[in-house]
Design a protein around this nucleic acid. Structure first.
Lengths: 221, 221
DNA sequence: TCCTCCCAATTTGGATCCAAGATATATGAG
DNA sequence: CTCATATATCTTGGATCCAAATTGGGAGGA
């Protein structure tokens, strides 16, 4: 895995990336406890860099740290996730508006390539791979906005939502297909350089994703 | 000062709040170096909690930490600040829209009281006091949105912008007056429960603040 | 049987210590 | 006199250590 090959200047960064990756890959469940020594031993470092990484994640709203008790992954309520989607929606529509101004053919190809990989992962039933490429679509657009603050906020929203969706053990094929087709619709608007259509498609994608999530969540209960 | 009386459960939180306060009060300049031992001695703690606080601030985009070199306050370019204002604008218009749905008479009084304090501080020429209450107007609205993610992002934008405005040593009375009158216009729209007017006034306030900042910045050069 | 209190074990918060990297100074060659 | 190299000093990264807080369990009493 590339992530492991990456050379880190500090152990703290290594631990941070490792934990964030686990979160994005849904390898941790909401409310899960993160004991410092466990992580330190598992990652082959001391408690110091582990603690620094935990504080960073906590300040981004991904962990909750209670003094003298410890850190656990947040356990977002349905309202928390809805709130996150509301914010994400305005941020992503803004991002796609900016991105359209900056985008050239190379960028467009990159997005198309990403969607092709999504499709391939779904067809092959490679869920791990799907998770790795799915949100890349959004991250690429966020990046193309050329606005670093916007990009970091969007990434944060995605991470927050990842924690919630980790409770869904076996993803419903229906959701994946639907998400893919919405990505295609957004891409189509981008190809046509139709700003308001792109914004509209993006907003609908956010609403649909949110709704799908909760209609599924209710079924589970 | 109340902040000093506050009881902290951890030294790390204490250091964090202390540094954030200095940033919001424009007591630190962009690019300023933050040596760990200096801060530790100044605040009467060891390097450990200082380092944790520095990482937290860095993960929020307020500090830049270079491995083996150290931490310094970020030194945002004009584009960085413009980008921050763009994001802040969409976040704050969203916040005021949500806030209007939740707001009762008590909340309205709180906003009016805040604006009265702003006015008082300006009249008396108490700049320190002005800084303390000025952005409270925005923080209150962000809080009334009832959306914690939105609130945290808005606060982060305000902090980022505070760093930039710290280069303005003596604030121009003109800016303060103009900001105050815009707050009053926003409040007026809130009183009338006019959502689109409130959004419009808020957006204009953002644009004006941003423009004022840069027209002033150019004069300085 | 259940509740309360107390003690042991575990875990975190924070201080200290050491090594490694970076910076600044000084030294020597051209 | 200038530049390059070497060295000393300073600062950070990370490991370890100790104290304090929390948790879990067991003993004792109602």
């Amino acid at each position: 895995m590339l992530r492991e090959e990456k050379l880190y200047t500090t152990s703290s960064d290594y631990v941070y990336d490792e934990l964030l990756h686990k979160i994005l890959m849904r390898q941790m469940k909401p409310g899960e406890r993160l004991a410092e020594v466990n992580l330190a031993v598992a990652l082959g470092v001391s408690r110091t860099p582990v603690r620094e990484a935990l504080r960073r994640l906590a300040s981004q709203g991904l962990l909750e740290i209670i003094p003298n008790v410890g850190a656990r992954l947040v356990s977002p309520s349905q309202k928390d996730v809805e709130d996150t989607f509301k914010v994400r929606s305005v941020l992503e529509t803004t991002a796609i508006r900016f991105a359209l101004q900056n985008m050239d053919d190379t960028n467009l190809e990159e997005l198309e390539e990403g969607i092709a990989q999504e499709e391939k992962a779904i067809r092959r039933g490679e869920f791990e791979e799907y998770l790795a490429v799915n949100e890349d679509f959004h991250r690429i657009i966020a990046h193309l906005s050329g606005n670093e603050v916007l990009e970091s906020f969007i990434k944060n929203c995605i991470a927050r939502i990842s924690i919630y969706t980790a409770i869904i053990d076996s993803p419903i094929h229906e959701i994946l297909e639907s998400s893919l087709s919405e990505h295609k619709k957004i891409l189509e608007a981008i190809r046509e350089r139709d700003v308001s259509k792109a914004e509209k498609n993006m907003e609908e994608h956010m609403i649909n994703t949110s709704n799908f999530l909760f209609s599924y969540g209710k079924k589970m209960v």
